[in-house]
Design a protein around this nucleic acid. Structure first.
Lengths: 142, 142
DNA sequence: CTCCCTGCAAATCCTTTGCATACAG
DNA sequence: CTGTATGCAAAGGATTTGCAGGGAG
């Protein structure tokens, strides 16, 4: 099976031990269309791994994100979400329903740092655009 | 006293009832140099309002941010922070020490939204730049 | 064989909620 | 007066931690 092998390879290549749980979690994220929360992962894998604990999911996603296989995105309140898309990209967040969409910047940001932060070494940045998604716009009383 | 009056005026102007706690909280934020957490506010006002409860602080900052007197910023993990600077601006976050700096964009972002989000109505956006602040850079073992 | 991962439960942190009382307008 | 804010305590959700046993390399 191609997909399963991918997860294993990715883990090995990242220098992580390959355990059934890790493989399943990574595979789940690879297949998942969207941005999964820890709970999404945990719940969805209950069938196959009834004994898997939440902390394992937390441990795993934390390590996956440390080795750069996934990206943690924490927008607004509630649970963090995990994104298999590790390319630099950003997010639209619907303030009504919480939906999350990826988007890309047409050009990189240019920032002017204040004197106190002179010399700040930028590692990464993330743009969170808040607004109303098309679906919620339609449902608005007009 | 000039400063105290400011807080009262701001509250009145925003249509909020003026209570001693609200006045103190808003005043604290006006004077605070940085981005205070609920706990910062709560702790700092313990002297003057030993009986003030945490929920009052939460209630108050929530309302202040609803009327636009402060801005809530939630970066990464941990507690939300509140910013008296309500102009559109963005933040540098130090991944080592958690320090937070304001910055401004030299020009607004231009985004390309994906087809699924066609028609997304942008209300606001916030850029979170992660990296190493000058102080932490110096302390790095070199 | 060794060390890391897992599972479990408890703990922690941040935030919200319900309700009775007190106070601003 | 009336309605809202306050204080208190308890609940809630997300995440972390400690520890013993199990499995990967």
């Amino acid at each position: 099976m191609q997909a399963q092998k991918d997860a294993v390879q990715l883990l090995k290549h990242a220098g992580l031990r390959v355990t059934p749980q890790r493989e399943a979690i990574l595979q789940f994220l690879l297949d998942y269309d969207g941005h999964a929360t820890v709970d999404d992962i945990y719940t969805s894998l209950q069938d196959r791994f009834p004994s898997m604990s939440v902390s394992t999911v937390y441990n795993t996603v934390k390590q996956l994100s440390q080795v750069g296989l996934v990206k943690e995105i924490g927008v607004g309140d509630g649970a963090s979400r995990f994104d298999i898309n590790v390319e630099p990209h950003h997010h639209l967040v619907c303030t009504r329903c919480g939906a999350l969409f990826d988007f890309y910047l047409e050009e990189p940001i240019r920032l002017s740092v204040p004197p106190e932060a002179e010399g700040f070494e930028v590692e990464d940045y993330h743009v969170e655009v808040r607004g109303v998604c098309p679906r919620c716009k339609k449902q608005q009383v007009s």
